[in-house]
């Protein structure tokens, strides 16, 4: 029997069986053929329904995942914002503490002292930018101090922004003396955190760790402000000691400064 015969036979027999199934009623009254068709269609329908449900679930899952991703990103941004705000608040808190520290030194100056916030510093160049709450035109060489000591002087002022020359600037010079006023010298900036104390006589009684305060002899800075602490003393063939010191003001971490615009040197070089 050829293949055509076989196919034709199967086809005819199938049609005849379907014809017979159409004539025989099932339990429900409908033909057996319909129950066969239901038996064939129901699994396909179930699979199709399952596929549709799966696709819908996948779509919902993908949408939920996308929403979760977006929310996660927003939460990360919010977290980063909170962290940045926390850092700013910590900076503000530290600044407020420093402002509290000004209560001591500011009492020694006029009520016109201004509080400035350090916004930029370049310790290598020896410059610093501070901002004040209000707009002021500060005079050149206006002294600037911090809670821990002398910072420098105003070089330029432009409203709220003011540029300072730190006492570590290579061209800076501050007249200093010991607390007992027995030893005087000139603190010269070196472009680094170290200061060179010049013109200290060889016979001067100076020890490592001694505090040097401003003497007011330079006519720029008010006297009595802590300026440097001696770190090294060396004798040489020169008539003066080679003294090295560091600034008492923590220029790396300083946030708030006190600007003294109304300080004017007196003839005696002391506080007005």
């Amino acid at each position: 029997m050829s293949r055509t015969y076989l196919l034709r036979t199967v086809l005819v027999w199938t049609l005849l069986e379907l014809l017979a199934a159409l004539q025989v009623p099932a339990v429900g009254g409908s033909p057996v053929l319909f129950s066969w068709l239901r038996t064939l269609i129901e699994p396909v329908a179930m699979v199709a329904q399952g596929t549709v449900d799966l696709a819908v679930d996948l779509g919902l899952g993908a949408r939920g995942l996308q929403r979760a991703t977006v929310e996660n990103r927003e939460m990360r941004i919010a977290l980063e914002t909170l962290r940045a705000r926390q850092i700013l608040l910590q900076a503000d808190l530290a600044a407020l503490r420093e402002i509290g520290d000004f209560a001591g030194p500011s009492a020694e100056f006029d009520a016109g002292a201004l509080v400035g916030r350090c916004t930029y510093r370049d310790l290598i160049a020896g410059t610093m930018e501070v901002r004040t709450a209000g707009s002021f035109i500060l005079a050149h060489d206006t002294p600037v101090v911090s809670a821990k000591g002398l910072v420098g002087r105003v070089l330029r002022s432009d409203g709220r922004r003011h540029w300072l020359q730190l006492l570590t600037h290579a061209a800076a010079a501050v007249a200093v003396k010991t607390e007992d006023s027995l030893v005087h010298g000139l603190a010269l900036g070196t472009g680094s955190n170290a200061l060179t104390i010049a013109y200290v006589p060889r016979q001067a009684e100076l020890e490592r760790g001694d505090l040097l305060i401003t003497s007011g002899g330079d006519g720029i800075y008010p006297p009595g402000i802590p300026a440097a602490r001696v770190t090294r003393i060396r004798e040489s063939d020169e008539p003066f000691l080679e003294v090295t010191a560091v600034s008492t003001a923590d220029l790396h971490a300083i946030r708030m400064v006190l600007i003294l615009p109304e300080w004017a040197p007196t003839a005696s070089g002391g506080l007005p």
Binding site: W13, E17, A20, Q23
Partner: peptide, 13 residues
């Protein structure tokens, strides 16, 4: 027969 169809299958077979 009770239905038409199975006889056709049987006789052709």
């Amino acid at each position: 027969g009770p239905v038409v169809g199975p006889g056709g299958i049987a006789w052709t077979a």
